[in-house]
Simulated scan of single mutants.
Amino acid sequence: MLLHFISDLIRNPELQRQFSRDPEDTMRRAGLSEPQREALHKGQLEPVMKHLRAELASLELFAVVWVKAVVQVGSTQPGIAAPGSTLALQVLGDFFTTGAFAVVKLEGADLPAVTRSVENPGQRGSVLSCTLDVPANTPMGVYDVVVVNPDGHYGVLPKAFRVE
């Protein structure tokens, strides 16, 4: 909780305003424990770090914070398309989250796919289902496949898709 709160506080101007107006209520609404609120209120690094170390020692939190960032693209189905076609594309991999999107990329030619769904979001064995339009003037070649999560983390599978 504390790690997420600090991260949100750094990035969210509205949360910063709320915290400036009423820090105690803002921390309470964020679900921080009384010891965590006291540590933040003191403004001393060591007490805050003590609570952050305790959170990071939790295996579940460790997985959310560190493993989630390793977006991996394993394969695509199908792996080929003809110019002028529209196809249902599935991208298989790990740690795609809800809101992720795929782009089929070749230098100078990006083909963004429209996301339909993400199965197993945030886990190993994620499947991104999307629709890919391949315009008739799309250059032939071997493309990379990129999956981007809403938080900016992404994975790339080089030479994973062909247009021919």
Rank of each mutant, 00 (worst) to 15 (best):
L87N: 00
K68P: 02
D94W: 10
V70T: 10
P135D: 06
Q77R: 09
L111I: 12
E119L: 13
N120H: 01
V73W: 00
P135L: 04
S33Y: 08
E34P: 03
R116L: 09
V127K: 05
L92P: 03
N149R: 11
T86R: 14
Q77S: 11
D94H: 09
E46L: 15
G122I: 05
E46G: 07
A81S: 13
F62Q: 10
L32Y: 10
A100S: 15
G122Y: 02
W66A: 12
D144Y: 09
D151H: 05
R124L: 08
Q123K: 15
M49G: 05
M49W: 11
P78T: 10
V118Q: 11
T98Q: 14
E46T: 12
F96R: 08
P47A: 07
K50N: 10
E46P: 03
R116C: 00
Q90C: 04
G74P: 00
S58E: 14
Q90G: 04
A82N: 05
V71T: 06
G43L: 02
P78W: 07
Q36Y: 04
A54F: 01
L40F: 05
T97N: 13
P78A: 07
A57M: 13
S129R: 15
N120D: 00
L61S: 05
N149Y: 13
L45V: 11
R29W: 05
V142S: 09
V48H: 09
P135C: 06
E55F: 02
K105E: 15
A109D: 01
L45C: 05
A39T: 11
L52W: 12
T138Y: 06
R37A: 10
D133H: 06
G108V: 02
W66I: 04
N149F: 13
G93H: 03
T76G: 09
G74F: 01
H41E: 09
T26S: 15
V103F: 00
G79V: 02
A109W: 03
L61H: 13
G141Y: 07
T138L: 10
D133S: 15
T86Q: 15
P135M: 08
F62D: 09
E34M: 07
S33D: 10
F62C: 07
L45K: 06
L40A: 06
G79P: 01
F62R: 11
K50E: 08
P83G: 04
V134G: 07
A100N: 02
L132A: 09
T86A: 10
M140A: 15
L56E: 15
E46S: 12
F95S: 02
S85W: 07
